[in-house]
Every structure is written in structure tokens, then in C-alpha cells.
Amino acid sequence: MAGPAAESLVRDAGWCLLDAGRRVERAQHVAALLAATLCEPRSPPRPRRHPHRAARAADRAEPRPAVVRRGARTHL
């Protein structure tokens, strides 16, 4: 299907864009093929647990009460 479509288009900016897209897709497929054949499969990532980060995020989410000092003077 790509052959007749490519041959019937006028060689303008649209054709150049389609041609560039085909070349990018072809390069992506070649890279995926090389990665699948030459690279060892990766193990799934371990879940990271950061309890201190979750505690900090929870502290930030709660509104903090206003602190009023004894003997503080207000200037009006």
C-alpha cells in the first residue's frame, strides 16, 4: 500500500514529511530488533520504598496550625 501511495504523491513538503516519517519508523524498528537480539533481557525493576518521603509528603499535605507566641506584640 505504501508503494502506490508514495509513487502517486507530488514531491513537495508533504511527501518529504511522509518520507522522513518512514525513515524514522524504520530506524526505530531496526534499533528494537538489534536490542532484542543482542542485549540480555533486563530483570523487572524492584519497587523502591522510601517511607521517610511518604511521611514528609503527608506532613506537607496537612495544614499546620498558626503558632502564637506568648507576649508577642502586635503593632497596629
Rank of each mutant, 00 (worst) to 15 (best):
L38G: 04
A66V: 11
A5L: 15
R56Y: 08
V10Y: 04
A2W: 13
P4M: 02
V68E: 01
E40N: 09
L34K: 11
R48T: 12
A31E: 10
A54S: 06
R56F: 08
A72R: 04
A66F: 06
T74P: 02
R49V: 06
A36H: 07
R42T: 08
L38C: 08
V10W: 01
R22D: 14
E25P: 03
V24S: 14
A20G: 12
A58V: 11
V67S: 07
A31S: 09
A58K: 10
H50N: 15
E7G: 05
P45G: 01
P63G: 02
E7I: 07
H52S: 07
W15K: 15
C39L: 15
L17N: 14
V68C: 01
A5F: 07
T74S: 07
V68D: 02
P65G: 04
R11C: 05
R23W: 14
A55E: 13
R53G: 04
D19N: 15
A61R: 11
V67R: 12
A57N: 09
L34F: 06
S43K: 12
G3Q: 05
V30C: 13
V24P: 09
R73L: 04
V24A: 14
A61Q: 07
A35T: 10
R69I: 03
P41V: 03
P65S: 00
A27V: 09
A13K: 12
Q28I: 05
P51Y: 03
V30H: 10
A6T: 05
H52Q: 10
A13I: 09
V68I: 08
E7K: 08
V67T: 05
R26E: 09
G14R: 13
C16A: 15
A36L: 07
D59P: 00
P41E: 00
R23D: 13
E40M: 09
L34Q: 14
G14K: 10
A5I: 15
G71D: 04
T74Q: 08
H75W: 09
V24C: 10
R70Y: 00
E7V: 06
A54G: 07
R60G: 09
R26F: 00
E40C: 05
P41D: 01
R22G: 14
R42Y: 03
L76W: 12
E40F: 06
A20M: 15
R73Y: 02
V68Q: 05
P63F: 03
V30D: 14
R69P: 01
L38I: 05
R69D: 00
L18G: 05
L18W: 07
G14W: 04
P47V: 07
D59F: 10
A57T: 13
P44C: 03
A36C: 02
